[in-house]
Design a protein around this nucleic acid. Structure first.
Lengths: 258, 258
DNA sequence: CTATATATTGTTATTTGTACATTAAGTATT
DNA sequence: AATACTTAATGTACAAATAACAATATATAG
């Protein structure tokens, strides 16, 4: 038994209470819902369980937090470890700490088997990113069990990871509403109107009227037409546009002044 | 030294790595930003440090999570302990886990002094609520060091609690945008148009045009005029309105179907 | 009856959203 | 050279939401 720190509002001080040390302190992990568009589908990066035991399934890339790292840093580290990418905007969107999230016997069986540790409670902080990856298979051999899988055809997932992914898909729409910039961090520097529209359609899971989309695009003010055109396509070539970071910041500075 | 659970994406298994056990496992706490309107100001409930030591300051009501409770349950418990209120909607809005949040020497000095424990890292999950409290002083003697203090006149706060409060004030606006219901959970069952408008003004920290506000109120469809009128006021009496939960749910069911 | 305080209400102009179909510009085929 | 095929680009009309703006109504207090 050991002392469990328990702040009291009464006088701002801490009470102590006994807890059973057989139960581990809650661990804190960070899980990343890394989204991308692969083969014209919104996909999430999942790691497959390949250990020789009877548990089959996939999980989000994640890690316990290191001693000296911030939550944001842990998320960046996981992003880099699992995709090789850096400088991708990551958004913390929700923490999941229900003790019941680690009660599925198969999942805990796998985790304890794989880790050789007794697994207590894990509170996880979930992050979200839209990744510049357009190939299904990561070129880095190190990550050959990671797969980009369509968010609407998810396999069996460990713990509450399916729930976390569903929450992430809701969240990315709000994020794009607030900060459209992340779409342009995702797209190549030069993109066509159709590519942009298709990206929005896959994120929001709905069709946008072509003419209205063009109109809205123009109204933004930070999407500028270049004089370059698509080449080598067997039909009328599309214009390339680019994202004007300076104009964007000016426009959003005004909005946030309110 | 002990083993530190570290999941690897490579094969979905766990690696272990050594950590210094002198550093405690990260604790997980929940802090609540309890907002209310008191004396026509948006206020937050703060606990004052009153222990006999040289650290002066205030803190958010919070607690380490108990073994068997979910994060949401911990937040409800803290709400009840600090205000006596139950059934108030609580929203988890962000977790704060920077190791540097517990590096202010005064704060840690106070905390270790008060708790008689070595304080390691604390990852806190912050929640937000709009509380039905209209008196500055809580009637319950048990909480006589808790004060409702205006969010724009904050005292010296422990750790990163000022930062958390600022984030909460931003967040409540988004929350109200998405779920106006919480405003009606806060207001009394019968309220005047002016009370409603003033509540919005204090939450958003801006004025709303009276006529346009009435028009919008009517357009909602779930705010229904009663035939009761204000009494005992030294001027024209205002009509009372009420919130129609059934109409609200129908309207929002349609919106979320998209 | 008058002063005072707050409640209530409507119009116009502007902006934004939505529905909808044709023409333009390339390549591929014959 | 003509035609078929594919995708790109564009405008208009109506509806809805937003924003700016001031006069009248109704209660109490004196």
């Amino acid at each position: 038994m050991c002392l469990y720190l328990c702040p009291s509002l009464e006088d701002g001080t801490m009470k102590t209470q006994k807890i059973n040390t057989e139960i581990l302190y809650p661990h804190v992990s960070v899980d990343c819902v890394l989204l991308s568009i692969v083969d014209d589908k919104l996909c999430v990066l999942l790691a497959e369980l390949t250990r020789e035991n009877d548990v089959k399934g996939f999980k989000l890339p994640g890690s316990l937090i290191y001693e000296t790292e911030d939550l944001d840093q842990a998320a960046s580290r996981i992003l880099k470890e699992s995709t090789g990418l850096t400088r991708i905007p990551l958004k913390q969107f929700k923490s999941f700490g229900d003790p019941a999230r680690t009660t599925n016997k198969d999942d805990v069986h796998w985790l304890e088997n794989a880790s050789k540790l007794k697994v207590g409670r894990i509170v996880t902080v979930a992050y979200l990113a839209l990744c510049k990856v357009r190939k299904r298979q990561n070129t880095n051999e190190k990550y050959n069990t990671a797969h980009w899988m369509p968010v609407d055809e998810l396999p069996r997932l460990l713990f509450d990871h399916e729930h976390i992914i569903k929450a992430a898909v809701q969240e990315i729409r709000r994020w794009v509403d607030r900060e459209p910039k992340i779409v342009f961090d995702y797209l190549p520097a030069k993109f066509t109107a159709t590519e942009l529209r298709r990206t929005y359609e896959l994120i929001y899971n709905k069709k946008f009227d072509v003419r209205n989309f063009h109109k809205k695009m123009n109204s933004f003010g930070y999407i500028v037409a270049t004089d370059e055109m698509e080449e080598g396509v067997p039909h009328r070539s599309a214009r390339f546009y680019s994202f004007d970071k300076v104009k964007y910041k000016k426009i959003y500075a005004k909005l946030s002044n309110n």
